[in-house]
Amino acid sequence: MISSVAFAAEDWPRWRGLNADGGWNPKGIPADFARKEPARLWSQEIGAGFGGVTACEGRVYVMDRLKSPKEIERVLCFDAESGKKLWDHSWDVSYGGMDYGTGPRSSVSIIDGKAYALGATGVAACLDAASGKVIWEVDTVQTFGAKIPKWGFAASPVLDGERVLLHVGAREGSVLALDKNSGKEVWRGGPDPAGYCTPEIISHAGARQLIAWGPEHVQSLDPASGRVNWTFPYKITYGVSIAQPIYHDGILLVSGYWHGAKALRLGKSATLLWENQSDICGLMSAPLFRDGIVYMLDKTRGLQAFELKTGRILWSDDNTLSPKDSNPQMSLVWMQESANLAALLNADGELVYVSLKPEGHKELARWQIIGKTWAHPAFAGNRVYVRNDKELSSWRLW
């Protein structure tokens, strides 16, 4: 749940889009879309980072890190049509020995004319989305006792009513809720330290639950108070709780690199429905879901399809859609969900159109639009905005 605010179809205001589920579904897709080569509209030099791109009300947002003349993290805002930089806001950082210490990991969240950002070392900021003026800024490590995980804070801010939710592992609180207008603490809850997974709000049996996957538990919290509803143990090697869980039909699915997938049946608590510790192992890539089928990138087999209720694997692409790697990655979205059409940006920076069905997949087109990247693009209208460690660029798709 993002807000009662109405966003346009051309907006991608937070991590994984309007509903944080990888839904793009633009209007006016031409019948021959796969024949139309993307056209680059503009490109801007930026610093390094893994954080995704967001786009809202004609502006594009991204975070980066510069190491000279001094080490800083920045929030950058560009005009969506021209690529002109409208503003930037920075703060001093020291990554020290942070593993994969390239740059920020999270996406900027936009709502009610404000931009919310969380840096890799725990600085959280609320900025005026049009001007970049600071509304509030707080170091969650110094102020709330947040503890930086091995690979830095990676979860994007989640807006819920009057609160912004940060997965930072503050003392006695896996998730920290701040007043979105003042930055003051509202609540903190959950037993785990910080993981790398952006929390999400689901509705189960008529009640809203905040799902926060940490390095030791899958946690369900009351989003209004932070009270713990239930926890399910899932202790992960190196604490790599990354890929976003999905919830459908009373089932919550989590999947990790080292210990595989677990499907939890939700009631008053969570019980194990099935698990697969060797053949369904996600890492960073958030899955898609349609009609009972999950489409998810496995660490060794590439993109694969399996039944949510049973875990039965239907097919895998054998690493044809994204390069095989010890840390595989692709960003998946529904391009036209009703027709089972998806788009993905793979780790080589290729935009791939693909048909995803229970009986198999079919690649429709492939275009090189950027260099190697793990960062999630923003799909807005007939545009895609992509970044890597050197540039942010805009492409018209048809």
Rank of each mutant, 00 (worst) to 15 (best):
L344T: 08
R312K: 15
D279I: 01
S326R: 13
D298V: 11
I293E: 00
M284Q: 13
Q277S: 13
Q336P: 07
P328E: 02
S322W: 02
L356T: 01
M335W: 04
D279M: 01
A339I: 03
E275N: 04
M296Y: 07
V294I: 15
S285C: 13
D291K: 07
L321P: 03
G282D: 09
P328W: 12
L288D: 07
S338G: 14
V352I: 04
K299H: 11
L308G: 06
W274P: 10
G311A: 11
A343K: 03
F289L: 06
N346D: 15
S355K: 00
R290L: 13
M296S: 08
T300L: 11
S316T: 13
K299L: 09
V352Q: 14
D291Y: 12
I313K: 14
L341Y: 11
S278P: 04
S338T: 14
R312D: 02
N346W: 01
I313N: 00
A347G: 06
K357D: 05
L283Q: 09
T320Q: 15
N276W: 11
G292R: 09
K299Q: 09
G282V: 12
L344P: 03
Q304E: 08
S278K: 05
R290H: 13
G292K: 07
V352R: 15
Y353A: 07
L351G: 02
L297T: 08
N346P: 06
L303Y: 11
Y353E: 01
P328I: 01
P358N: 07
L321Y: 01
N346V: 00
E275M: 04
I280G: 00
P323V: 00
I313R: 15
K324W: 06
A342N: 09
D279S: 05
T300D: 15
I293P: 02
S326P: 04
D298F: 11
L341K: 02
G311E: 01
S326H: 11
A286R: 12
F289A: 08
L351N: 09
D298M: 11
S331M: 05
V354I: 00
A342R: 03
T300V: 07
A342C: 06
Q329N: 10
L344R: 05
V333Y: 00
L321D: 01
V294Q: 09
G311S: 13
S316W: 13
N327E: 08
N346H: 10
L321A: 06
P358D: 02
E350F: 07
S326D: 13
V352L: 12
N319T: 02
Q277N: 10
W334C: 03
V333W: 03
K357V: 14
L297Y: 08
N327V: 08
M330A: 14
A286S: 15
L297S: 10
L321M: 09
L308E: 04
T310R: 14
P328N: 07
A305M: 12
D325V: 02
F306L: 09
S316A: 13
L297F: 09
D317S: 14
Q277G: 10
I293R: 07
A342V: 00
K357L: 12
M335G: 06
L341R: 00
F289S: 04
